[in-house]
Design a protein around this nucleic acid. Sequence first.
DNA 1: TTGTAGGCGTTATCAC
DNA 2: GTGATAACGCCTACAA
Lengths: 338, 338
Amino acid sequence: MNIGEIAKRAGVSRSTVSYALTGKRPVSEETRRRIQAVIDELGYRPNASARALKEGRTRTIGLVIPPAGQRLTDMQLGFVASVVDAAARADLDVLLSPSGGEHDRSFERVVSGRRVDGVILMEIRLEDDRVARLLDSGVPFVGIGHTRHPEEMSWVDVDYDTLIAKCVHHLADLGHRHVALVNRSAELVAAGYGPGHRAQAGFDRAVAERGLHGVRVCCADDVQAGQTCLQQLLAAHPELTAIATINEAAVAGLYRGLAEAGLSVPRDFSIAGVAARHWAESVHPPLTAADVPADEMGARAVELLIQRIADPATPHRHLLLAPPVSLRSTTGPARPRP
Amino acid sequence: MNIGEIAKRAGVSRSTVSYALTGKRPVSEETRRRIQAVIDELGYRPNASARALKEGRTRTIGLVIPPAGQRLTDMQLGFVASVVDAAARADLDVLLSPSGGEHDRSFERVVSGRRVDGVILMEIRLEDDRVARLLDSGVPFVGIGHTRHPEEMSWVDVDYDTLIAKCVHHLADLGHRHVALVNRSAELVAAGYGPGHRAQAGFDRAVAERGLHGVRVCCADDVQAGQTCLQQLLAAHPELTAIATINEAAVAGLYRGLAEAGLSVPRDFSIAGVAARHWAESVHPPLTAADVPADEMGARAVELLIQRIADPATPHRHLLLAPPVSLRSTTGPARPRP
DNA sequence: TTGTAGGCGTTATCAC
DNA sequence: GTGATAACGCCTACAA
């Protein structure tokens, strides 16, 4: 079923059918109706590949996510959902590429096969090969996250530095003097994962400003790791009374570890974090946290990308979000441990 | 950058370049090397649209997921992750279509624009317009879930009927006489959501076989709803001592509701469910549940789809999984309530 | 071993 | 207001 078949049955030329479909040239009411009738009858739809080949665009965007097999955090899922949603609203399809590091065939296909008009890249490292590859290829792209060189690309990101500092200040205001930062996994941080590094920077700065005792630890992204992490933290630093964290996935483990140690939150111990709002609200107890508007960020990234696709020469744009800390049930006045 | 440019620079014809790339015709070592050098220098990749147009296939599969905006359950996320993963392993790209019911443009594009070679469909209803649409269009597809007419399509599914019955029998074995089924949301069940109906059937049957008192309720897919649901359940049926459920997302709410009512699990109250293994293990307390191998199911669906794409005339295949119930921490001997 | 040429289904530029 | 026709970039008979 192709446009020629429709043309034949409607007794017109292929171009007329094409113009009737796109509306890029006036077509008499009479023929338009006849054409539409045939189309409805046969259920014809233009072939996307042929159209893409001719028009030079695919009406598809690529979304590069962390490699499958590893569970996404709630925040990452929020990004994905909102990107897909925003794209659908703009009548764009989304091609998913689970891409790790080096020789990733899926990523390579997306970037260099003209399969997509643009790309949204998640989980960016400070030095990121994929960014280099995208810059080199000339495919328009937008990051959710950015590299060590913010000016080289367009992005939306969370201001982890500022937010973790806000958390620490909040804890200091409550009288906490011994505070730990629970970061993402050691591998991620070692690999130059931006949020991990920026969180450290913000933590160090705030700790210094307030003259606190700060401890920094990394923790894998799961409940079990969070629980173990907390045990080790309490063993090594019994004077701790509070934690600041960007590790959503470990928080439930921190809660369990505290319960296990007989510490009640927030009476004996406080936790403040950076997390997706939806998640911070629904976890139990609800987490005092800087509420990252993950749902909004994906939509923003799509907007930026659509602009770049329309005009690749447009200057890069950057959106650094620092939402306020929402007080919930996990922070309270410091109560020094015996 | 196209194949003609490469050919010109390498001093050969376009077909030679094409054959050098696909290996479908012998090419002398000498010319192959020259061609490869040019390709490497210019970073050439065949245009996916042109190739798809010529070959009549896109090397892409569509994955139809529940509409964005609504959170996916852990099990659904497991399906998505494993489909994406399995597809990547087979060098297939995945086009995501968040599709609700009726006039969904995204779904329509995927189905009828020849954008994909096949489709995997999630969250199928007993009567599902999308299935009808796919059958009508002739696009190969595989369901994760199935309709009222199992023979009309290929699918992999969870045997909720059997599994919920197993849960009820397990509870009955422990002496529970008053058991409730916590189903998915009322809207979903009213809309003819298969798992909801099959769970009810299995529940009713097992309850009858064991001569128990059974109560069936629906519950929205979130923690808050689970908590409310439990409150109402206890208020209306104070004699209840156990719950069987397929509602993963509500379980945390059930836990909270029980804690709130001063009931300890599993001493005072038992819960058995059907859930993704990973999730059942990591929730606290770990849930006694029939462990749905979500990760495996997505891979199986992709296998089935690849077969159907290769030979659309092949008979339909069905995979109904009924994994054993894993004993964890949420079921114990019945202790009649005062 | 290599080259020539036709066609996949569309859009868009000419003509009429 | 409509029709012929040339691309878009690739693959693949058919020839040489």
